[in-house]
């Protein structure tokens, strides 16, 4: 970024058009090009992103508040909401602990196979959700090696809640780690070494020194992890068995309603998840805005 001395103290060279002088800069496009490009971007984003969002909200209320509210109070709907919350409540903390452990090991030490480990952690990110669910069906399903053993212990994983939890954990596995690893690598180990030299134990160092340093990155990772955990469809669809009122999470219930032509109900439930998405986006933007330096790679996916 070019900031030449204090000559141009209030000038940000990245946004040439914000230059306070009225003349166009020699390294910017003619105005018509600029506004055409802005127009294209706005129309594209509106048609692709904004309209679907608006559609959800409009359709949700299309049959009135009564039907809207009914979607959540109706037993199967309420069960779906409860199940979604339960799954997230299990998956997110587990992935959080994993993420912190993995980031600690990777950021604070040099060991053989470190980059291999980092690549492995990224795997669930690149696997199709359907495959993510299917692997658990193959592992615990009726034709698997483990099935007789599970039956003996009366454990039902596939077509039951434990399977849904596992599949959700799989797909949201990397989120917290991906956020924390570069962040902790950037921050280095000096703070921890200082704490140790002052006599702190490992635990104390972690709680009092590391955790405050990473708290915004942690929150960011948890936000994304939670959004995905509550919204996962493909993986859960494969493993859940779609038992209405029992093993349907909110996304699956939405599918059920939609396929039964209960559009208002489907969109009502969808609007809840859309609200969650908006809240996630808002919080994400606030975090990036206020704490940009304390988040690593805020724009990576």
């Amino acid at each position: 970024m070019a900031m030449y001395e204090a000559d141009v103290a209030v000038y940000d060279s990245r946004r040439p058009d914000e230059a306070p002088d009225a003349h166009s800069r020699p390294t910017s496009e003619p105005a018509w090009v600029k506004w055409t490009l802005i127009g294209i971007a706005v129309v594209f984003l509106a048609a692709l992103l904004v309209l679907p969002l608006v559609t959800v909200l409009v359709q949700a209320f299309s049959k009135g508040i009564g039907v809207f509210w009914g979607a959540f109070t109706e037993p199967a709907g309420a069960a779906a909401i409860r199940l979604t919350l339960l799954v997230a409540a299990i998956a997110v903390p587990l992935n959080l602990v994993f993420g912190v452990c993995a980031a600690w090991a990777i950021a604070k030490y040099q060991f053989w196979g470190k980059s291999f480990l980092t690549t492995l952690i990224d795997i669930p990110f690149s696997v199709s959700p359907v495959v993510s669910g299917m692997v658990y069906v193959l592992l615990f399903g009726a034709n698997s090696v483990l099935y007789p053993w599970l039956q003996a212990w009366h454990l039902q994983i596939v077509f039951a809640v434990p399977g849904i939890v596992l599949a959700t954990i799989f797909v949201t596995f990397p989120f917290v780690a991906r956020e924390l690893i570069p962040l902790m690598q950037d921050q280095g180990s000096q703070d921890e070494e200082a704490a140790l030299s002052l006599g702190a134990t490992g635990w104390q160092t972690f709680w009092r020194v590391t955790l405050p340093n990473i708290k915004w990155g942690l929150l960011y990772g948890v936000l994304l992890c939670n959004a995905r955990a509550m919204g996962e469809f493909g993986a859960v669809s494969v493993i859940s068995g779609h038992i209405r009122g029992k093993t349907n999470t909110m996304p699956l219930h939405i599918e059920l309603l939609f396929d039964s032509y209960n559009f208002a109900g489907a969109f009502a439930m969808a609007s809840l998840l859309a609200m969650l998405a908006l809240v996630t986006l808002i919080l994400k933007t606030i975090l990036e805005f206020r704490y940009g330096d304390e988040l690593a790679g805020t724009r990576r996916h």
Binding site: Y4, E5, A6, D7, V8, A9
Partner: peptide
């Protein structure tokens, strides 16, 4: 010194 305007003049 910094802020004297020399780079601005050059530009």
């Amino acid at each position: 010194p910094s802020g004297s305007g020399k780079t601005t003049l050059l530009r």
